[in-house]
């Protein structure tokens, strides 16, 4: 069973709201840097940067982070691990870093991402923005900016499909048979 949770318009509105929230919470864009988690988070971070520029007329740095080398399940997962690019366009030391991911689930990816970030410097602050929070946390981690809270069961899967991957923008919930 597949259920559409968000369409293109919904995603667009959510990102506009989160862009405003980021600016509001940080009182502008000074010292701000967005870091997307590969892969979905990278696309979302880039979109947020465009929106923030539209609002504040300020360029904001966007980095991408691959967390596969910092995961806690290497050798447990079934699929062959793919290591993607990590690119930090600036020194993150003393910056306010907003981590961006598509789905917040157990919190383990975010734990890995924070470890990876620390290897690049000592940020003044790390904040977290996610498009979907589906619950089931296994670590004490929460998001500062949430697109939509969606209660799920553990067996369901959430898929964020984005134009950057050659798909139509939408978020779908899939129940496992």
């Amino acid at each position: 069973m597949i259920k559409e949770l968000l369409n293109k318009k919904d995603i667009e509105r959510i990102l506009s709201r989160i862009a405003h929230e980021i600016i509001e919470k940080n009182k502008g864009t000074e010292n701000l840097c967005l870091v997307g988690i590969q892969r979905g988070g990278v696309h979302l971070a880039k979109r947020l940067a465009v929106k923030i520029k539209d609002i504040e007329n300020a360029d904001i740095m966007v980095g991408s982070l691959d967390i596969s080398l910092y995961r806690d399940d290497i050798g447990i997962r079934k699929e062959q691990p793919v290591v993607r690019k990590t690119e930090m366009p600036c020194d993150i030391t003393d910056k306010k870093v907003v981590l961006v991911d598509d789905v917040l689930f157990t919190g383990r990816s975010i734990r890995s991402a924070m470890d990876a970030l620390m290897d690049f410097g000592r940020p003044a602050q790390i904040q977290l923005a996610v498009l979907i929070d589906r619950g089931h946390r296994e670590l004490p981690i929460r998001a500062d900016y949430v697109g939509k809270n969606i209660p799920t069961s553990r067996t369901e899967s959430i898929e964020v499909q984005l134009e950057e991957e050659g798909l139509e923008d939408k978020v779908v919930l899939q129940a496992k048979e």
Binding site: D66, S68, L69, Y70, R71, I74, Q80, V82, V83, R84, K85, T86, D115, D119, F120
Partner: peptide, 24 residues
Amino acid sequence: ELILNTASSFKDILKRDIKKVPAL
């Protein structure tokens, strides 16, 4: 091809200040 593509990501790591990753 998989090994060579993966190696290119590891080459980036060798350019960082902290060249060690906790993967293994």
